[in-house]
Design a protein around this nucleic acid. Structure first.
Lengths: 193, 193
DNA sequence: GACAGATTAGGGCGACCGTCCTAATAATTT
DNA sequence: AAATTATTAGGACGGTCGCCCTAATCTGTC
């Protein structure tokens, strides 16, 4: 099954190009050039560009799920797991400054294109939102957990957006620090006396 | 000077289309159709698409400056002026849910296109950042004013991004409330005793 | 080594893109 | 009324797009 390997290469290349140039701008020709196959061959693996996009979204979902699983294994305490999430802004800082958040920018683009796969892309956000919610539940935030999860997601989106616009590393550092602080504040009022 | 009027119509139409469909997707043909002129005539007013973009950015700058001036006239207290800013998320909710933040999504798109006019688009953010900074200075936040301004800008971006993705009006309402709360918290510690 | 299926290469399709040119018309000036 | 300028219409250009087709080549089986 050589096809599986080629297909995988296509998805990986498309993932990168969709991120760096946007879905619409990245063309079949671009992807084929990276994978070093002919445009004709491309059609054997994917009939339409939307099919490539669907595969890319699924691939991203798999990667993110694996990442969340890793965080759960590496960190026992839910608070530290949440910090792992916040820390993406630091560890992926260079890419975020250059191309923004991979999830957010894709959702924004698909919204403007009024694309049929927008809900699938939004699923990437939902994945993080539900995972964060679970951590906050474990932290004893109860009914507030969904709101707290969305709030944190919102902040990471905002930081990514402005980091991309202003290329300001100091701003990112400051906001990450503020998010850690916020996290602590959410937990301390919960402690008995 | 009929040309001035036509040129203005083109800019207004392009502004709307760039916002709703994105800069790259919106074509000369699209704009010409809205303005009801021929594609050929278009070239008389703008030689290149980038020239249209530059005019649109300038137009947006003018509009925003006028809006900030209006807020300054309508609201005496700087705190209320900041609230006017926060309140855009409510007053423009429908459009934001459909197309995101006009400033943020343009900056994101131009970043991915590696477009020469990205700094000009970022100037729209800078306009708000400096205006907010001035309000915070007036509120006595001193050296913290720039950071507070960027923080607020960040939050409005994050809320716009997730509002666009999830179409959740309740989330927007909640986050706007939290921003009002945050604003109060920034000011109260400043009060003597 | 002949055969069958899997995979690839290459090019052609119509449509649209931004750009550019020229001829016709409208408006203004003389 | 003529001349000049400002504005418009319409189409042609080379290029790229997503998509589709067919012929060649590779791979493994009998």
């Amino acid at each position: 099954m050589k096809a599986d390997e080629t297909r995988r290469k296509i998805v990986v290349a498309a993932d990168k190009l969709f991120y760096e140039q946007g879905f619409e701008r990245a063309s079949f020709a671009d992807i084929a050039r990276v994978v070093e196959i002919s445009r004709g061959n491309f059609y054997y693996h994917f009939k339409t560009k939307d099919a490539v996009l669907a595969a890319v979204i699924e691939h991203r979902l798999d990667e993110r799920k694996a990442m969340l699983r890793r965080w759960e294994q590496e960190e026992d305490k839910p608070a530290n797991r949440v910090k792992s999430f916040i820390n993406i802004l630091i560890s992926n800082q260079t890419k975020i400054m250059a191309f923004g958040c991979p999830v957010g920018t894709l959702c924004t683009e698909l919204a403007k294109l009024d694309h049929a796969l927008k809900p699938e892309a939004a699923g990437l956000f939902t994945l993080f939102a539900e995972w964060l919610e679970r951590q906050f539940v474990e932290l004893g935030c109860g009914g507030q957990a969904p709101d707290l999860a969305m709030h944190l997601l919102m902040r990471s989106q905002g930081v990514a957006s402005l980091a991309n616009t202003f290329q300001d590393a100091e701003f990112v550092r400051r906001e990450v620090e503020a998010m850690y602080q916020w996290l602590d504040n959410q937990l301390s009022p919960m402690r008995p006396i």
